[in-house]
Design a protein around this nucleic acid. Structure first.
Length: 535
RNA sequence: GUGGCUGUAGCUCAGCUUGGUUAGAGCACCAGGUUGUGAUCCUGGGGGUCGCGGGUUCAAAUCCCGUCAGUCACCCCA
């Protein structure tokens, strides 16, 4: 018998990619299912697009230079150049622009696809990774409110905090921080640094660098500043002709004002006027006042604080983001020793750039690689010690709703009874989305995925985006969302609940009135799971 | 594209400086024994072209050159 040589070819996993065996996939799902559950509870709808696009879609925004960082390819005998998607924003903008006229405004979309970048892999950066994107596009009422001169009047820049309206920026930051909370990333581990390109421009003016306002090189310099040594920083600054000391001092001054807002729990009476007085900018027209760019940040911070997010937030004007397309609010989630975990901001011109109508928009992206590293380093990844049942239970608890509603239909739709209760809607919605953690779990120092974490699990709660007070229109809005329960909150915290399908009142199990106060027995959140027809 | 480190059993690694028996350990796996759980414990066993190619040498896992892969950092960062 002739000897036969078996030629065996071995194939290797491409550089920068990962194989997901059952255990690894489960860990990935712990992250992605948490993202999905949190997105749903905050009223975002999931979308997806093609894995590859025409390469033009990416070069139109960033120039031809980006091609070297794309995996691009052509069909056999074809001319068109395609590219695996390196990010979602162009696809999102394209999809939104295509259907803009028929889409509800605002439009809240999230996606959890994988992306591809032809870079050299290193810690926290691979060639294929997953990224969670959340975006709010085309705020309807919000835009009108901004145009209302009373809201940005110099005499009271904080008036918006009393209105209690949802703003797109706050919605986006809320869903972002809520995901960190879900995974146990407390403010001691991660921080959300908040900046604003227009406020940064203000700092430039205060620092005597007026000529650099809007200069992309400044964004680049400041974006890198935290990574460079002081010598190199001075060198880089001098290269474009600015004094780093002067600029830095101006930024810190503005930041102090921002910190004051956060630390005072959202009530600030004199922060901005003080700043203005100090710099002799008191004589401002309304137009100039708005150009300072502080009104948005000054509204956002108290709003976020009212939703229980203040402990993560910190104003930091050196957050400007490297990308050209941001126009206002910008933010990054940072942790010790890691590259940015998430980043995003407002991009009001981008939809238009992709052929849509002028559309205000705000969003962020969070990758699974850096997040996974961070969770593992802090003992916050289930199954890390090899305990597979822990991992299985964790994923099960998330996907079945034991750790919070994953109902695509809103569990509850919240409106105010009258003007006096307007300010109570958003905090209640935020509280319902956050849930109430149990004392046993807290005392035990339990893990984020433990089944007994919540006495009141987080719910899918939504406010209205409409400005109307007409009850029939609000009911229609609730029905359009396919919400289950209609909640009307009155001044003082009493709440009335109605089943939207039957229009019948829903009474608390132990009688009396529902309450917006999470410490009370009849807290609205109790309805979750205790009524079969609602769960 | 540039630089540092790493590559030895299925996994985690020791051995390399200073070349020299048959290349080792733990875990995992297989068999037998003990045993009132398929746990524990005891005994034995299988398993390695030392990433690949070339060079130096009587002799290379070890020294030299090349190459591939991984990883970290730089560049870049949507």
């Amino acid at each position: 018998m002739a000897s036969r040589k078996i030629s065996r070819t071995t194939f290797q996993r491409p550089t920068g990619t990962r194989d997901f065996y059952p255990l690894e996939l489960l860990k990935r799902r712990y992250i992605t299912e948490t993202w999905r559950a949190v997105s749903i509870r905050h009223g975002f709808e999931e979308i997806d697009g093609p894995t590859f696009e025409h390469a033009d879609l990416y070069t139109v925004k960033s120039g031809e230079g980006i091609l070297s960082e794309l995996f691009s390819f052509k069909r056999e005998r074809g001319d068109k150049l395609y590219a695996l998607r390196p990010e979602f924003t162009p696809t999102l903008a394209r999809m939104y622009a295509d259907k803009a006229a028929s889409l509800p405004k605002p439009c809240r979309w999230f996606s959890i696809p994988s992306f591809f970048r032809a870079e050299r892999p290193q810690r926290g950066r691979l060639r294929e990774f997953m990224q969670w994107n959340c975006d709010v596009m085309g705020e309807g009422r919000e835009t009108e409110m901004l145009l209302d001169p009373e809201l940005s009047a110099p005499t009271n820049p904080l008036v918006a905090q009393d209105i209690g309206l949802a703003s797109a920026d706050t919605d986006v930051i809320e869903v972002l921080l809520s995901s960190l909370d879900s995974m146990g990333l407390a403010p001691g581990i991660v921080q959300c640094r908040l900046g604003d390109r227009r406020v940064f421009d203000t700092a430039l003016r205060l620092g005597g660098h007026e000529q650099f306002v809007g200069d992309a090189r400044m964004f680049d310099l400041v974006d890198k500043s935290s990574k460079l040594s002081s010598d190199k920083l001075v060198e880089a600054s001098t290269a474009i002709g600015v004094s780093w000391n002067q600029l830095n001092t101006a930024m810190r001054q503005v930041e102090q004002e921002l910190d004051a807002i956060v630390q005072s729990g959202g009530v600030v009476t004199d922060g901005l006027p003080l700043l203005v007085a100090r710099k002799g900018l008191r004589e401002l027209t309304e137009e100039e006042w708005r150009a300072l760019g502080v009104d948005e940040l000054f509204r956002l911070l108290p709003e976020a604080t009212a939703r229980g997010l203040g402990r993560w937030l910190r104003g930091d004007l050196s957050i400007v983001r490297g990308l050209a397309y941001y126009t206002g609010t910008v933010f990054e989630v940072l942790a010790e020793g890691e590259r940015a975990i998430a980043g995003g901001g407002r991009y009001d011109n981008l939809i238009e750039l992709f052929g849509g109508p002028p559309t205000p928009a705000c969003g962020f992206g969070m990758g699974d690689v850096v997040l996974g590293n961070l969770l593992a380093d802090h003992g916050l990844m289930p199954g890390a010690s090899g305990d597979t049942s822990e991992l299985m239970d964790a994923v099960h608890n998330i996907t079945t709703g034991a750790l919070g509603s994953v109902s695509l239909r809103p569990d509850v739709f919240v409106v105010s009874a009258d003007e006096k209760a307007d300010g109570d809607v958003i905090p209640l919605v935020a509280q319902l989305r956050r849930g109430v953690e149990s004392d046993v779990w807290r005392e035990r120092n339990g893990k984020p995925w433990d089944a007994d974490r919540y006495v009141i699990p987080p719910m899918h709660a939504r406010p209205t985006d409409k400005s109307t007070r007409k009850e029939d229109k609000l009911w229609k809005d609730a029905q359009r969302m396919r919400a289950k329960v209609f909640a009307t909150v009155s001044e003082g915290g009493s709440v009335q609940l109605k089943n939207i399908d039957t229009r019948e009142d829903v009474a608390p199990p132990s009688g009396g009135e529902w309450s917006a106060n999470p410490t009370e027995e009849n807290f609205v959140g109790q309805l979750f799971g205790c009524h079969g027809h609602l769960g």
